[in-house]
Every structure is written in structure tokens, then in C-alpha cells.
Design a protein around this nucleic acid. Sequence first.
DNA 1: TCTAAATCCGATCGAGTCAGTAGGAAATTA
DNA 2: TAATTTCCTACTGACTCGATCGGATTTAGA
Lengths: 152, 152
Amino acid sequence: MDISARTDYAVRAMLALAAAEGEGPVSVDALARAQGLPGKFLEAVVADLRVAGLVQSRRGAHGGYALARPAAEIVVGEVFRAVSGPLAEVRGLRPQDTSYTGVAEHLPALWVAVRSSLRDVLDRTTLADLLAGDLPAHVRDLLEQPEAWVNR
Amino acid sequence: MDISARTDYAVRAMLALAAAEGEGPVSVDALARAQGLPGKFLEAVVADLRVAGLVQSRRGAHGGYALARPAAEIVVGEVFRAVSGPLAEVRGLRPQDTSYTGVAEHLPALWVAVRSSLRDVLDRTTLADLLAGDLPAHVRDLLEQPEAWVNR
DNA sequence: TCTAAATCCGATCGAGTCAGTAGGAAATTA
DNA sequence: TAATTTCCTACTGACTCGATCGGATTTAGA
């Protein structure tokens, strides 16, 4: 799992918008300055978020972007998919669309399990959760595993 | 999570070797034919597995590769790391090495949780499990979630 | 000792992705 | 009209990815 700069920036921009909920639109420039991100690049990222319907835009002076829905109803997985496609792919295929013969017969089940476990984290954590540092119980359990914070 | 051809091939080759446990070394050519993989490319993949100590090689006629440990003691996560590095990275950094300010303050916890959930699948499933189609109970639970097998 | 079968090693290739930049058209507010 | 801001297209340089080629080295067996 390689979380790209693109995806990282998208989540951070969404968090900044979540923090500004109800305060009118925020410009890309303001978002970029707030999180220290390259403005022009962020512009393209936010464009993806708009196409996906996660944010609304207003052009012109005093324009900018705002969340299309309340932060408590937008899940991190949606942000991922908007800017970098499906959560899990195997050689460009969806996990359940892979097919193997012989000894690898049961591999698709493993790939589906991988996707399912990612969903359990990313599709259950909302922007509001993340902003408050109040992650879902099941996600907190993952962090409390003995070696969760060290390399392996 | 993009599971590359490289990683897919590595797991399939390891499964083929697991199936041939105790039967002497298997050549890359035999592995490639068994799973329908590009031979020369697989050669490079298997080389990574050797450097990581997951397989042992024997050169010359009747040479080939064999598992370095029993299939029941090799976990899929090891194969992943051998051929494609750490399970989870954020802009090239380990999850716990990321740092943010302001609204993104709690992001590292999410990244660590993502890695932890991947480990729960990949570091708990052995080659023997996968070969037998007998996945760990906790992994099977993931597959039984309502929409595990459909796109989202 | 010769030969065939293998691993091993390095170089190369084309296509694509990735992070980031540049420039300007269109829209909106004041 | 002027300033602001989204929107769109194009481009860059560096890197990755899947795959191939050619050959050096090692080994088993006839």
C-alpha cells in the first residue's frame, strides 16, 4: 500500500475544509498555505474531489471550496477513491476479478480479504472522527496491538 | 493498495514451491510454466526471494529453488516485503514517521491503523493456509462481511 | 571431459505514473 | 473595470514497471 502525496494532500485538504465547515468557501491558496502544500499541484487534487462530488466550488473573488456534505458523513475511503481509484487492485484488476489455476486457486479470497480489511479502516473513519482524533473503537483496537507502531 | 505483477508472481511462485515441498529443487522455468508467468521476469523476482532468505537455490543441472522454511512457517507478508518493500508507506515514509501540524494532527494514527490491518491479514496467513484454502478464522470473517465481494 | 541445464548478473527497453510547474481562459465579486 | 479565483490544457523531469536479451558461472551426468 503506497499512500501517494496526491492522496495524503487530498485528505489534509479535506480536513482543512472540515475545520472550516459553515464558514464559507476556502481558496486553494489558503488550503495550501494552511498545510504547507504546493498550490498548483493541490489545485489538480481538489479538482478530482470536485468531480467526485465531495466538495463544491464557487468561482471568482471570495470563491473557493467547501465540503459537499457534513464532515461526519464523509469517510476517508471516499477521498482515497476520488483521487487514486479503487482501494485495492491486483495488476489493475479488482480483487474478485482475478482468476488463477492450480496452486494459486485460493488467492482471490486473500485479495478480497485485504480489500475488506482496508475498508474496515478507511470506510468507517469519517473526516469528523479524524479531525477530533476520536477514531472508531475498532480502529483504535488496531493501534493498541503490541507492535502497531514499530516497523516489521 | 496496488498489488503489482511482481508481488502477485512472487506469491504464486512461493505457492508452487510450497506444493513441491520435499521434492527437491524446482527450476524457474518449471515455476513459470506451471503458473503461466514470463520466465525471465520471474527470474528477477525469485532472486529477490533468495536475497530475503525465503528460498534456497541450487545452481547447475537439476538445480532450482526450494523453500528455506516449511510452508506453514512462511507468511504472505514476508513475501510482500521481500519483493516490494514495506506493507504500507506514506510518501515514502513509514506510517509512524509521518508528521503533520494543525488539522492533520491525528493522521499518523490512521496510517498506522491501515498498516496494522494489513498485517492482520498478510502476516497471519501462511503459504500452507493459502495452499489448502484454509484461511485463518479472522481472515474468513472479513470474507463473510455483507459486501466483501462487490465493488464499492 | 564434454554437454546440457540451471542460477546468476547487468544492461536495456518502452510505456506509463508521479510530483510539480506554467500559462491563460472564464467566472464572480466589489 | 479590477482583483480574485476556479478551471483547463499542456508540459516537464525523474522514476517505476513489466519484460527481454546476452552472457558468465556453476553443476550433474553421460
